[in-house]
Design a protein around this nucleic acid. Structure first.
Lengths: 208, 208, 208, 208
DNA sequence: AATGAATGAGCATTCATTCAT
DNA sequence: CATGAATGAATGCTCATTCAT
């Protein structure tokens, strides 16, 4: 239908603008200029700016759900190995995000709501943490503790991602400070999880 | 100094408000009401609203850096095992975030910039993905593929965090679609990393 | 003619909407929804929204004029008493308004242009004035000054109507404050007019 | 207080503009231009445009109430004649409206909400009705039925005011057509009320 | 230093009117 | 004739920032 096409066109423009400049730094004026439509036309398709945003994400969510059920059909659950099953899941999740960088940015809350200079302030901390982990990994490789064939950058991001997500989940959602006990438990679990895949079997330094 | 105390008081109020309602939904009016100061006073301590925000994060960053160097001193690098070293790093990162839920929220871009109803639209996708992984893990445990002693919720968040971070890093920062090859490579690395810590040694089903 | 019928249908809908929600709170969208016609169709029958409104009143005015000339024919001016003549005039005026509550509201400027909550603010003053007059009349009846057979509510409205109309005519149409002399003259005339019909012959209180 | 003075200044400007161009044809821009203040300043004193309007009327109402209680004190209720009492009431009501032509216009719903050209369409009907009554009165005077000393224009407005108010009260406030019975009853009461004050004792025409 | 009244650029949204089909 | 998608000028309101006291 032609009406749907127009709506889609607006959504594509908005998605790019939201991802690039953030929700609050994208004005209706920007969207209609980009979409080459008149001001009033925008409001024929969306009730508010907010409506557009929510529609965008709702759409994305539906797309993801559809992808999931499709994915299920591809697998022969009786014969697949656990490793392949895991691999499959990971691949499909990545593919989903890889497919649309703009929605990826929006969903991952990058560039959402903050002007790029302020965004930078936030990213710096993440980057620094990642760099620290990278350094640690390199050190571990040099000392023959960590498998030398791993991709340092990727692994650092992987580990940082876990830690940030767990912080968010366990410390950020509430409002009160978390207890030391929580931290210890989480620390232990994270270590258990990463150790086997990350480290070589440990050889205590030969003393002489 | 008294001046510093006043500045600190403003920052504490702002931090809480930013974390709770987002940068754009926190007005100067809110901050000065909360901090019990006059409008003009605010501008004696900060040049703009943006300045306050950046100062807040800069502070946080310095705090983190200080924590890091402190941490280094605690360790006797000659005798510590690699596992303890890793554990140490993880613990300190978690502690840092656990210590200040408001800054945690801000840094992790939660509640930043979006009214809570729109924020919900975003969180849904993350939650759904996490739930899916949780289901997979439970299935794996039932089928004796996954170690039964793991914490399902924690592990799901850990895995999801990795995947989201990698998506962000490899697909979100640029603007062009990513190649299939990238996805395959990342998939493989993620699988390699998690497999040993997550799965029991695989026993192919006995055929009869 | 079919065209006239359609035009009439639009006018009926608009009349009801204007009377109920006011001119400015009635949108073209409301009218066409109610009249079940398309947006463009409206503009085939009326040049503007204003045109519709003016047409509506023009129509009403013509109707009234027609009613007047008709009325004249009913009377035998040679034999009718002055009282019947007056009664006749009053009856026909009332009938005219009684016949179409929507046009009545519009002509009497009720519900024109203001949202109902603001309209309320205006009505309150009128209501309070009327209530005050009602109280006075009741008092007069109790003291045997006013004929006990009158309809209090009706009479209060009648008197208030006169006063408001005279205020409007003598004080509202111009822009400058009116002189005290005007007020005195009008007061005297109003008193003269209402006194004979409203009051019993006055009996000065017996002194002892 | 200075703050009150500023608020008062805005209200005075708005009152004049509302009365002259109507609520909907008075823009915030007009008000602030007239009051020589900035856009934002307006919103320091009033929450909305509507708020200003309601405040204006609320003020007027309070003024009226204060006037009423004051008025009560002036009267010696034990000695005043009913006629003087009535005269007093009428005078004070008129004085109230005479005092502020702008608020008079607003309260009487003139110039409220409609551009002056449309307002004209409405006024025409009122004017025509008044003219008709004037003609009747002159006729009555010529025929020696009506007292020759009355003020024709004033009396016509007085009678029209009553009729319009009664129409409004009995036919306009509801939405359904009124019954013929209502009209007859009102007609009779109006005639009874005006007849004694308006007409000379009727002399049936001498027949020969 | 502290205050808070004043400022005005900026923005989302509305709605009468037009015009291609 | 009828339609309804498109238009864009107009408007109420927000809010970061300034500045006189």
């Amino acid at each position: 239908m032609d009406k749907e096409k127009r709506k889609h066109q607006i959504m594509e423009c908005a998605k790019r603008l939201f991802a690039t400049h953030g929700y609050y730094n994208t004005q209706i004026s920007d969207i209609i200029r980009e979409a080459k439509i008149a001001r009033g036309t925008f409001y024929r398709y969306f009730n508010h700016k907010k409506d557009l945003f929510v529609t965008l994400l709702e759409n994305y969510y539906q797309q993801w759900k559809a992808g999931i059920s499709l994915e299920a059909q591809e697998l022969d659950l009786r014969t697949i190995t656990p490793e392949d099953y895991f691999r499959h899941r990971v691949r499909n999740s990545l593919l989903f995000f890889a497919n649309d960088p703009y929605l990826c940015k929006i969903t991952l809350r990058m560039g959402l709501g903050l002007p790029s200079d302020m965004e930078g302030s936030i990213q710096r901390l993440e980057t620094k943490i990642t760099e620290l982990i990278e350094k640690d990994i390199k050190l571990g490789i040099n000392n023959n503790h960590i498998r030398p064939d791993i991709d340092v950058e990727l692994t650092a991001n992987l580990v940082v991602g876990s830690i940030l997500r767990l912080s968010y989940f366990y410390f950020g959602l509430g409002e009160e400070k978390s207890s030391r006990a929580d931290v210890e438990r989480i620390t232990e679990k994270v270590t258990e999880m990463f150790f086997p895949g990350l480290f070589l079997k440990y050889q205590p330094p030969a003393t002489n």
